[in-house]
């Protein structure tokens, strides 16, 4: 019984880690630019397909595809940001929602056209398959790997935000973009680089998640709610909030599917509505 509980917790944390990697970019861009971007999952899907195609058609090893997935999604992010997104920073939320739903539809149709409607599969390298035995309990090796990656990413992000000059510029722009621009910070450049970074992380998450979340052309729609939830519950613009929200969601979803399979997606939606009512500005959001 206790073993089960630990196993469910562990799987939940691994699942939450994935949600965190994918959503953290959305959280930062939403906090930075106040842009409701429903198309964030499309960048994750792009990273996932980059990984799958490189592995199956070019024979690139799995670990080497991860940086490439990051790069592909980041490149797509910066191109779209410069050409389309940046024109809509001042638009209403409705227009941003419509615009990004349009992008999602195009991404879904484009992916179906390019890769077909079925699930993409990758074969993980041997050392990531199987189980790891710790203290009499079995843990999936891949999930241990996932959690490790997320710990590294989180520490790197935190150090970047707290220790580097660019991180200081990002924080200043989140707090007050107008004042930051007045102090000589090139806010547009900060926006663009942050957007690319966020998209890249989503791409990395998409590639990491093929084995856990699956990958098919409806990916951006299927998981849109989850990514938005991480941001909405965590509060836009905070890493800590996003991390906590992703873990809560991941554990609740896995536990719900394990202990109450007949309730299905119910648990996550009830949790979502309840949390949004209790914390309209998110767990760590600033109340305005």
């Amino acid at each position: 019984m206790l073993g089960h509980l630990v196993g469910v917790l562990f799987d939940g944390v691994a699942y939450g880690s994935l949600l965190f990697v994918i959503s953290i970019g959305l959280s930062v861009t939403m906090g930075l630019m106040n842009f409701v971007n429903l198309a964030h999952g499309a960048f994750a899907m792009l990273g996932g397909y980059a990984c799958a195609v490189l592995m199956t058609r070019a024979g690139v090893p799995f670990l080497a595809t991860l940086p490439l997935a990051f790069a592909a999604a980041a490149a797509a992010g910066i191109v779209l940001e410069r050409t389309l997104y940046q024109r809509l920073y001042r638009a209403t939320h409705l227009e941003q929602v419509m615009f990004s739903i349009g992008l999602v539809f195009m991404a879904v149709a484009g992916a179906t056209w390019a890769f077909g409607p079925s699930q993409a599969a990758v074969r993980l390298p041997g050392f990531l398959r199987g189980q790891v035995h710790v203290a009499g309990l079995d843990f999936g090796a891949y999930r241990v790997f996932l959690i490790g990656v997320v710990v590294v990413v989180t520490i790197a992000l935190h150090l970047m935000l707290v220790r580097t000059r660019f991180g200081a510029q990002v924080r200043a722009s989140v707090d007050n973009a107008v004042a930051a621009a007045g102090l000589g910070i090139d806010v547009n450049r900060v926006f663009a680089v942050t957007f690319a970074l966020g998209s890249g992380l989503a791409g990395l998450g998409g590639a990491l998640g093929i084995d856990v979340l699956g990958l098919d052309p409806t990916f951006p729609l299927k998981y849109m709610v989850y990514f938005l939830l991480v941001v909405a519950i965590g509060g836009a613009g905070t890493i800590k909030g996003g991390l906590v929200a992703a873990m809560v969601l991941g554990i609740a979803d896995v536990a719900g599917k394990y202990y109450l399979p007949q309730a299905g997606a119910f648990i996550i939606y009830v949790l979502m509505v309840a949390l949004m009512i209790l914390f309209p500005a998110g767990l760590y959001g600033r109340r305005t």
Binding site: M30, V36, H93, V97, V225, L228, L229, V231, A232, A236, G264, A265, F266, Y269, V270, M272, V273, M276, I277, P280, A281, T288
Partner: peptide
């Protein structure tokens, strides 16, 4: 209650909830 994002999420959530 709540701002645009919270409304978006709550309406979306209620819709999905009823569907389920």
């Amino acid at each position: 209650r709540g701002a645009d994002l919270a409304r978006l999420m709550v309406t979306l959530g209620i819709g999905l909830l009823l569907y389920e």
